[in-house]
Design a protein around this nucleic acid. Structure first.
Length: 1097
RNA sequence: GGGCGUGUAGCUCAGCUGGUUAGAGCGCUGCCCUGAUAAGGCAGAGGUCGGAGGUUCAAGUCCUCCCACGCCCA
């Protein structure tokens, strides 16, 4: 059937070297500009009306570290989905993004320049500092590009976006200005950790990086521990001659005390101490604790008062500094009174908590609720100002002792002690942090809650629970968003404030607007970083003589990444892209890690909802954390994981990709990374397809087969061909569903099952149809080749998004080389296989599944009988009550006989002669009906004899334990009776006739010889189509059997022997390739030479 | 402290609205098959389903509490 005038397939290499294959493909892609072409198509085709857009947003990583598995996993997901939708005919723009601002790079530069804190940076110069950040932030970009390229991810690094680009920053300004115009921006306070030594507020991230220590009792890791004063202070009630006792570990906050908090539901005892006569209030259980600790003497209880009854009562300020707040003023309610707060606990102290709203999260919240002023007499360095004259110029922690001394002197100190407790320390200076309320800028989120929740309901989350649970709950209780940071390298807040009247502010929404206001020529402002815009001032519109100066803060980098849908397109300034942004929000798809729930997912969602009243994305895959093999976090220090680049070089990117997206990590669950797992993936996910390819090419070349369009269009007739064609359709439906529902973990298993069916049934059963010399049906052979070809090519396309290299390599050899690619130079530029109407034959697929089950049972029976499959047996009996099973077995009887190696197949309905029947109660049916009698009936059913079960099946019902049960109420079980060589599974039973006649034995010997010859051929390194001259010598009955013409013909045909000689043993041994065996105790010597006379070198 | 997950064989994971003897893949052991295959088939060993209570005729599955781990928040 040689197609002499057509190009043919290249020979397949003997072994798969995946990393080498991938390097080869990378070279071809580079030489031909394949990725660029695909990316540009994705970026342009929607604009030219050639394809609908599928919108993908890429979340920007920090480029300050090297890519690791935490990037490679989402990177792979972000490659697979766009590749799939590209093949489905969508134009998918894939722009890479970089998060350039923020603390990671600032910290690095601070370290490099040896700058300790904000003051150091100011002294060094903001311009120099920022330029150092700019210069350093893209340090690892080349390494990123190399890893991303090597992973086979196609993403545009040329038309990328950087959050530090002036155009990006200008859009961020626009976003903020829109929020400002919508009335969603306000200035407020938030309690923040401050490092006094650095004179800087710290982020939570930085706090978490502070020194850690294990608690000696609980063994839990926590903040480093420190010793602090632990004092109990008495506050004189203003309306009664009695005191409230309050406890604190931060005496330095006492000058700022504005309230005392009690729990509304706790009971407070009013007591008179016998030794001092003092009357005081404190919570009952704490009173006992104080007594037991010997802090107080005997007392008399005068009254018991619930906390809520104490609320509202005034007390005398401990210090005079802020006494004026006793009366309402500046819009605040009266301070120095008891307030109720649920957070008050009885773990320590007196059950009465001193409140300084400026110096604690809880205090702040209570203060806000009670409308108390924020009183903060400390600078960022933690030094008291003139409002506390006694302590002015003193550092807060140093003031502790002075304050305790003053209290003692004034008789306001009940008890003085120390406490050792975990406390946050500065990650750079190791000094204790101070929490204080600082002015900052907020975006209102609370009024948007409802719309946020509603918009979220339209988002398809994978896995679902993240959206419904974690994200949904968070939205429902979303708090206003602090978007400002007291930092340097970031997009400056575009708020200019009048130096005469702080309430006179403008928010700038564009560079042009700033230039106009500042009287600068258009184009003057080239960069928007602080060192370019901080000094720009302009006169106030409203306040005569006032000068507008920019506030100090920059944006939190989350605000910038959340602005990415707009800012990456310089929205709304770039006219050509403006429509695109508006038309394509929400995006079709994003993917990031679970840690982004409160990060990027949230900021994207809030901004899109606030600005456009829409969600930001329609589909999202949330990936879990990649842990090291030991289940711990991957840690550079512990070196508990292999370097990603080495893993890729060893096993290949395709293997790593398939491994990562087959595990729990694509369902937001943690995944333990195992190098062995990647290695196994080569075998289980790449080799099966490669082996099918190699089989095809070997025989297609040997037979000169090259498919024509007509071959591929023809509808096959052979049942195996029709089966695999139908099976391919089912596979396509399954894998498409997996891709389109974004359940990527279902993709590889579907593909593996398809490869298994192809390799272990279709090819295995079809093998002879491809062999020269055995064909008596050229059309049938052509059909088999065409079917196998089409199946492999379809699988190659279907798995291309996951295995971009292997699929490309196969595509080039199977399709491109023979000119069938419709001009597409890459599988990634091809369409995803469309379903073929009418190719699905569900009954056929079901029948093959049945047959495979029967064959498995028969092979198990052979195992039980210890008869090698190579030895033929006379008869296999298949007994099944189900006519569908019997019909399937009859239909594929030849396959069953060949697989099981039996001469005859007997199919019947009755299995009574092979099995004993037993029965079990059908709990699901009977349980609800019988209730408590279930147990007794179940026991009675189990006790039924084989005969009783049989007659029950025949009659359709049975009576046990006083209950009439239908056959559906019991489950019939079968067990092989006696020593029959049989196996049973459900209602299918197979039995083997194991009697071996001389005839069968001789036939088995012939097959043994074939097997030995084939092994010898392989050892001689012959090609599968080489003809041979065979010489054999064998002892006794073996020799006689092999001499029979039928067996000799069989051996010759199976081994491509042109001639079989039977010379004396010594002559056989003189042949180029010789092998000696013993079969059933008889010696056999084989000699072999290639038919063309020469021996292969 | 709160929210959301996770905990099932040596490893990685299935197990739907409760229902028969808890499964798969890998790994291990034995046997087998092989005219592409580093593959494949059959069998075997391996499980107190994190723990304790409870609901139920029946719990890996539902409820309560606890333990461990992860992420986020505080």
């Amino acid at each position: 059937m040689a197609d002499a005038d057509r190009p043919t397939f290249r020979a397949a290499p003997a072994h798969l070297d995946l990393p080498a294959l991938e390097e080869e493909i990378l070279g071809i892609w580079e030489d031909n500009g394949v990725p660029e072409r695909s990316l540009q198509w994705g970026a342009r085709a929607w604009r030219e009306g050639k394809a609908p857009a599928y919108v993908f947003f890429d979340g920007p990583p920090f480029a300050t570290g090297l890519p690791h598995y935490g990037h490679i996993l989402p990177g792979t997901i972000k490659d697979i989905v766009p590749r799939y939708f590209t093949m489905r005919g969508f134009a998918v723009e894939r722009r890479f993004g970089w998060d350039c601002h923020g603390l990671p790079i600032e910290s690095l530069v601070q370290d490099e320049l040896g700058l300790a804190g904000a003051a150091d940076i100011e002294a060094h110069g903001v311009a120099a500092f920022n330029e150092a950040c700019r210069a350093g932030v893209l340090k690892y970009v080349e390494k990123w590009r190399a890893t991303v390229r090597r992973m086979g991810r196609w993403v545009d690094f040329e038309d990328d976006y950087k959050t530090m680009d002036p155009a990006f920053m200008e859009s961020v300004w626009w976003v903020f200005r829109r929020l400002w115009d919508l009335g969603l921006v306000y200035e407020g306070y938030r309690v923040q950790p401050v490092s006094p030594a650095l004179a800087t507020p710290l982020s939570n991230f930085e706090v978490a990086q502070g020194p850690q220590e294990r608690d000696p009792v609980t063994r839990k890791e926590g903040h480093k521990r420190r010793q602090d004063p632990s004092i109990t202070v008495r506050f004189k009630l203003a309306d009664e001659d009695a005191f409230l006792w309050a406890w604190t570990t931060t005496p330095w906050t006492l000058p700022s005390n504005l309230a005392l908090a009690v729990h509304p539901d706790l009971v407070y005892a009013k007591v008179r101490f016998e030794d001092t006569g003092e009357v005081a209030y404190l919570e009952e259980s704490r009173l006992s604790a104080y007594r037991e600790a010997g802090k107080v003497g005997p007392y008399e209880v005068l009254a018991r008062v619930p906390g809520r009854d104490l609320a509202g009562r005034p007390y005398e300020p401990l210090f005079p500094y802020f006494e004026r707040y006793r009366t309402p003023q500046d819009g605040y309610a009266a301070a120095f009174r008891v307030v109720a707060a649920d957070y008050v606990s009885t773990d320590a102290g007196t059950g009465i908590v001193h409140q300084a709203p400026a110096f604690g999260e809880d205090d702040f919240e209570v203060g806000r609720r009670e409308n108390l002023p924020i009183v903060n007499p400390l600078s960022l360095s933690g030094v008291f100002d003139e409002r506390v004259p006694d302590l002015a110029g003193m550092f807060a922690k140093d003031a502790d002792k002075v304050i305790v001394g003053m209290l003692k002197e004034q008789g306001k100190l009940v008890d003085q002690d120390t406490i050792v407790h975990p406390y946050p320390h500065c990650y750079r200076t190791e000094q204790p942090l101070l929490y204080m309320a600082l002015s900052t800028w907020f975006v209102k989120v609370e009024p948007l809650r409802r719309m946020l929740v509603e918009n979220n309901e339209t988002i398809h989350w994978v896995p679902e629970h993240v959206g419904r649970g974690r994200f949904g709950n968070w939205l429902a209780e979303a708090r206003d968003w602090n978007v400002a940071r007291n930092r340097f390298w970031g997009t400056p807040l575009p708020i200019w404030r009048c130096d005469e009247d702080p309430s006179d502010m403008v928010c700038i929404g564009s560079v042009a607007e700033l230039e106009r206001r500042a009287g600068l020529a258009p184009g003057t402002i080239r960069d928007l970083h602080r060192h370019y815009v901080d000094d720009i001032t302009f006169p106030s519109d409203k306040t005569p003589g006032g000068t507008m100066r920019r506030v100090r803060e920059v944006f939190d980098c989350w605000f910038e990444s959340g602005s990415m849908p707009y800012a990456q397109n310089h929205y709304p300034f770039d006219e050509t892209r403006k429509r695109y942004v508006e038309d394509h929000l929400p995006a079709d798809f994003i993917a990031e890690g679970l840690d982004q729930t409160r990060g990027w997912f949230y900021t994207l969602h809030v901004l899109a909802t606030a600005l456009f009243r829409r969600p930001a994305f329609k589909n999202v895959i949330v990936n879990g954390l990649i842990l090291a093999e030991d289940g711990k976090k991957m840690s550079k220090r512990l070196k508990n994981y292999p370097d990603p680049n080495e893993v890729i070089d060893r096993y290949g990117a395709d293997a790593l990709r398939a491994y990562l997206v087959s595990g729990p990590a694509v369902r937001a669950e943690p995944m333990r990374f195992s190098e062995q797992g990647v290695r196994d993936t080569v075998r289980t996910a790449v080799l099966p397809l490669w082996n099918a390819y190699r089989f095809f090419v070997t025989y297609a070349r040997a037979e000169g087969f090259v498919p024509s369009a007509a071959d591929l269009a023809a509808t096959p007739a052979h049942p195996l061909d029709r089966w695999i064609r139908s099976r391919t359709q089912s596979f396509l439906a399954e894998i498409r569903e997996a891709y389109e529902s974004y359940h990527l973990d279902r993709v590889v298993p579907a593909y593996q099952r398809m490869c298994d069916d192809l390799n272990n049934w279709y090819i295995r059963r079809s093998r002879r149809r491809f062999w020269r010399g055995l064909r008596d049906d050229e059309a049938g052979q052509r059909e088999a080749f065409a079917t196998l070809y089409a199946t492999i090519v379809t699988i190659v396309h279907a798995i291309a998004p996951v295995l971009p290299f292997t699929s490309e390599w196969l595509y080039l050899r199977l399709v491109q080389d023979v000119g069938l690619g419709d001009g597409a130079a890459s599988v990634h530029e091809r369409s995803f296989p469309e379903p073929v109407a009418g190719a699905v034959d569900a009954a056929l697929e079901r029948d093959v599944a049945i047959v495979r089950r029967v064959v498995a049972l028969a092979l198990a029976a052979r195992e039980k009988a210890q008869v090698a499959v190579r030895r033929p047996l006379a008869t296999l009996t298949v007994a099944a009550a189900d006519p569908v099973v019997r019909a399937a077995v009859e239909r594929f009887g030849d396959d069953v006989r060949a697989e099981v190696n039996v001469h005859a197949l007997a199919v019947r309905a009755d299995d009574a002669s092979f099995v004993h029947y037993g029965a079990k109660a059908n709990f699901k049916r009977l349980g609800p009906r019988l209730g408590k009698r279930m147990k007794a009936v179940a026991a009675a059913v189990a006790a039924l004899s084989s005969e009783e079960v049989r007659s029950a099946v025949e009659r359709g019902s049975v009576e046990v334990a006083g209950e009439v049960l239908s056959v559906d109420d019991i489950l019939v079980t079968r067990a092989i009776a006696g020593d029959a060589v049989a196996q049973t599974d459900g209602d299918v039973t197979v039995a083997l006739d194991t009697e071996i006649t001389d005839e069968l034995r001789a036939e088995g010997w012939a097959r043994e010889v074939v097997n030995r010859v084939q092994n010898l051929r392989k050892a001689a390194d012959l090609d599968v189509s080489d003809r041979i001259h065979l010489a054999l010598w064998a002892e006794g009955a073996l020799g006689e059997a092999l001499a029979r013409p039928a067996h000799e013909r069989f051996v010759a045909g199976e081994t491509l022997a042109e001639r079989i000689d039977r010379p004396p043993e010594a002559a056989v041994r003189a042949r180029p390739h010789v092998r000696e065996d013993v079969i059933d105790g008889m010696r056999l010597v084989l000699g072999l030479a290639r038919a063309d006379g020469g021996s292969p070198s």
